[in-house]
Nucleic acid binder design. Sequence first.
RNA 1: GCCGGGGUGGCGAAACCGGUAGACGCAACGGACUUAAAAUCCGUUGGCCGUAAGGCCGUGCGGGUUCGAGUCCCGCCCCCGGCACCA
Length: 887
Amino acid sequence: MDEKYFPEKTEEKWQRFWAESGAFAADRDPSREKRFYCLEMLPYPSGFLHMGHVRNYSIGDALAWFKRLQGFNVLHPMGWDSFGQPAEQAAIRRGVMPRDWTEQNIEHMRGQFKRMGFSFDWRREIAAHRPDYYRWDQWFFLKMLERGLAYKKVSPVNWCPQESTVLSNEQSSGGVCWRCGAAVEKRDIEQWFLRITNYAEQLLEDMRGLEGGWPERVLTMQRNWIGKSEGAYVDFRVKDTDERVRVFTTRIDTIYGATAVVVSVDHPVVARSPLKEDVARFAARVRAARAAARAPGEEEEKEGINTGLFAVNPFSGEQVPVWAANYVLAEYGTGAVMSVPAHDERDFEFAQRYSLPVRRVIERISHEQEQIVHDPSSQDQSVAMPHAFTDYGILVNSGDWSGKLSEQAVVEMAEHAARGGFGEPATTYRLRDWGISRQRFWGAPIPVVYCDGCGTVPVPEEDLPVTLPDRAEFTGAGQSPLAGVAEFVNARCPKCGGAARRETDTMDTFIDSSWYFFRYCDPENDKAPFDKEVAEYWTPVDQYIGGVEHAVMHLLYTRFWTKFMRDIGLVSFDEPVKKLMTQGMVVAETFYREGEEPGQKVYFNPADVDVVRDERGRVREATLASDGLPVTVGPFEKMSKSANNGVDPRDMIAAYGADAARLFVLFAAPVENDLRWQEAGIDGALRFLRRVYSFVYRWRGPVAGAPADAASAGEFSADARRLRHETHRTIKRVTEDFEGMRYNTAVAAMMELSNAFADFRVTPEGAAPSDLFAARETLEALVVMIAPLAPHAAEEMWEGLGHAGGLLAGGARWPSYDEQLARKEELEIPVQVNGKVRARVMVNADAAEDELRAAAVADEKVRAWVEGKQVVKVVVVPGRLVNVVVR
RNA sequence: GCCGGGGUGGCGAAACCGGUAGACGCAACGGACUUAAAAUCCGUUGGCCGUAAGGCCGUGCGGGUUCGAGUCCCGCCCCCGGCACCA
């Protein structure tokens, strides 16, 4: 142990030690029941580690270390989400082959991870782009095909013009590409889908079991996305035909107010329209408008056309016109609605535009003292409505149903429709099937061939993997580069042996990440994606950590995949992840100037900007170092290349060391919060490490001779008792904080303990055996508790304290605490008079109520406040406070 | 619009079940050590009044419950995230 703490030297030493001793290798061991699967979302191998990675993996690593020190068998693996767009972009721009580019990046990033000292079991590393991995993507696809869960159809898809590929609904949420942000267009393309909708109800229902373990906002986002809606189907007979139009409604109680049936322009019934040429023209216009990219949130004006058809309301027998309109979506519900202008905002707007009648059938009511109070004015048909009335109320002008409450009517009318054979209660979902075809090269090929004779033929399981060719032409234009590779495309039909063409689309990379953490359990298996028994030991994942940006996409897909794996007997549970933690982004200030194009911004790296701040930390003046001219200060944004506000972790490591960088990102903010990057803060982390290090250095010799246990240490001085109390109290707090991943407060507690140690007024040289015992107890606890956050420094200090073999193999254990010692001997109890703190009294920690009362009332300051007043009562909360109430 | 999460010093943030608001850290200021600087150590730091003792105010705003409210209830305002012609 050196006198001073040298991060670089220490970190190198212990990284070598860990690698050579296999310190983090974990194996299935059925005799060890305490096992823990700690997982962070696997990174895309972009080539460079950024601060977001540092944060994500520091959080997970801290937990993995904590659990190991508690005696758990911990699986903490790492791999690469290595298929995907950037590799292909590199190929287009720089002519490097995606595989070479990816392998190089992995190589480089693995080195950076190791330099951070993360405790991964590298033997289990996987990469999605390697055939021994994607072979199983293909295997899963075939299983889904067998079970009718994979199918191909032509459908309007989300098309990213920037990347010329299809996106799933999840990836084009909000009308923009999740990756590049380009506005998404609609195109008709034939592609493969997975029937995630078959699992809609389970995906929704099983979220109940995740309450508490998953963040509320993620569950909410998934619920919104699945979008369950309960209502009813109602069939409207189309007059003079034998057809029926089925509508979906959540407000069947308003059906007597229906003044039209409105269908989407793609609805089959428009073929029966006497005006079908006009309708077709209108439909073409609507489709064209839809195909055009639109800004998110922007709504089209409602437009429609009367088809000339009439539909019969099965409840009232009334005939209403059938319209086709742009505001009715073909993909949701039945693609047809009953239009009730009086009680639906959209129908109201539509009716206003085309002067359709508005008929009120729900009367506004209020509840006062258990009584229903009617508002007759709300059903006055002669008064124009300013907007639709969409609340529940009481049915009026609704035949025999008049007088019923909406709540009742929605149930009973659906049942009535079912009995009459013209409808039924119904549930719909917003969730659509998962479109997985990508017109790309760098992904797992979809294992299917097309044969003129036999049609679509799956590649037999034994012929997997269908491997990607080594080379292709990357032009960035037209179809998938795979289509241009003859030896890939030309294949034999597995059925008839004749010439056939291979599918040239590849799979969505989200398939790779849907099951990868099962593969970690058994990464070399060449008979199955993973062995059921081996995986069963580790899974489900105990704690999953990643960015909230995957709240819907990845986390919904992996839940779906798990349910499918359960259905084919690979796993025996419903949900893959017990606890989920979504960490916040690392954000930093941005600086920019307006570019040549209007609205264009040219960003400058904060390191190149000279900033003058006022006393509140606000930027007063910002100038570019190179030219001295002012730059505009932008908001805090996620560190990114485009905002040019990234901090390179390598610079942090070089200046402060990996330990200080890790400690800082965990201390600076709660893990769920966004972390505002401030370089200055990292100094504090390094200072803390140095401080503890210097204590250890100073005490390491004397402490080696301390008595083995407290009983033989003799009498403890008041000072030593105080230190022991602080130590045990801190162990308790830190343990609880670690359990809840509250690293920021855990670090604060440890800092307090180190401050308390600095106040320990005994010198190592003049210390009594009992003092040495107390000092060792504190230092050892502190070192072990620091280990998950700053493992290199902790190893060095642990060794300095005379332990060989490293923390894990050398037998370090997470410290335990003594409840008695953790409790204070004496307490300072605040005494309030009428709720305001007026004095504090020192009392014994377990002073009884009457002792407390006596001490409080006897206090001089309290007496001054009570003087001349009448004491009404005295509230005593033992161990907390006393409140004297006077009048 | 609907759903979810928030609003506390100059800043990042603490505060278990209603019980001393602001722990811990950053920044700032003052001091010690030093020829000097760095490093380190000690101290001050929510606002206002006061020489001080001390007092008053203070957790987005307005009410309420309570001996006591950052925390619970009612009504608002604002911010962040998700969904959004979803019938």
